[in-house]
Amino acid sequence: MGLKPRYLIAAIVLHVLLFSLLFVSALFTRKIVALPVFEAVLVSDPSVEAQRQAELEREREQQKRAQEQQEREKARQQVQEEQRQKEQERKAEQQRKQQEQKQQQVEEAQKKIQEEKRKEQERLRLEADAERKRQDDVKRKAEEEQRRQDELKRKQEEEEKRKIEAEKKRIEDEKRRIEEERQKQIEQERQRQLDEERKELERIKRAREAEEQQRRNELAQMAAAEDAARAAAARSAAQAPWTAAIVDKIRRNWQRPASSASRFNCLVRVEQLPNGEVTRAQVLRSCGNAVLDRSVENAVIKASPLPLPPDPSLFERVLSVTFCPSQDAC
């Protein structure tokens, strides 16, 4: 068992101390127990007071003694303590010495190692120097190369830039040219539109003039027609009694089959001689079927000779006769 002797010694000392303390305490304990028990009785006898004074005195004496005892004990313990400290110091000194020795050994070893290390480092430093040198060379070379290339690149870039500039310029020129072209075209278009507008205006003007002319013509024609119509109206008003006589005669001669159509409207052109004799009756617009067409033709023929107008100047050779079965069918 690798227990160090100083630990053992310390342990024994500690035990002895502890046992001694135990012993002393046991001594004092017994004394306290032996203290008498007083039963206090109040009396008015001064002797008792004196007795009590004496008692107090005695007790004080006892306390003094115990105090002395305690002081003694204390001194003793102090001595012991001092001894123990001395011992500890001694031991610590011993220990320190041992440690110093040990330290010395370690230092020596460390020194040795450091020396080796230094040597190694020196070697490495040399190697590194060489390497650095070599690398420096390479680096320099590389830098040179880099410079060269940079130079080249710069030159290329400049060239490129120049080219771009030229291209830009070319594009600008082109743009300008196109813009000019466009402007030119716009101008031309504008000119053309102006021309067209002018032409259109002229055309409209001409058309208006023509229309105006036409309108004038029409108005003239209308006026003429109106005059003619007025004349015709006047004439037909004069003819009214005569036509009424003709209508009456034709109606009396118009016979159509039972249960024939109730709605039709047909037109017959009638030609007559100045004596009223019908020379021709022709259906221009059919009544819808052959039977009715024949009935209207026959009505005209059966009505021949037609009545004559009182004034021969009102006579018309050609009549347009419309036939309807009833007024609301016309």
């Binding site: 003709i246 209508v247 109606r251 016979q255 039972a258 249960s259 009505a299």
Partner: peptide
Amino acid sequence: SGAARAELEITVTGGTEGA
């Protein structure tokens, strides 16, 4: 109507419907 001046226009309504 101007041209119709040459012809007389008349309208006949009714007539006899029968046998």
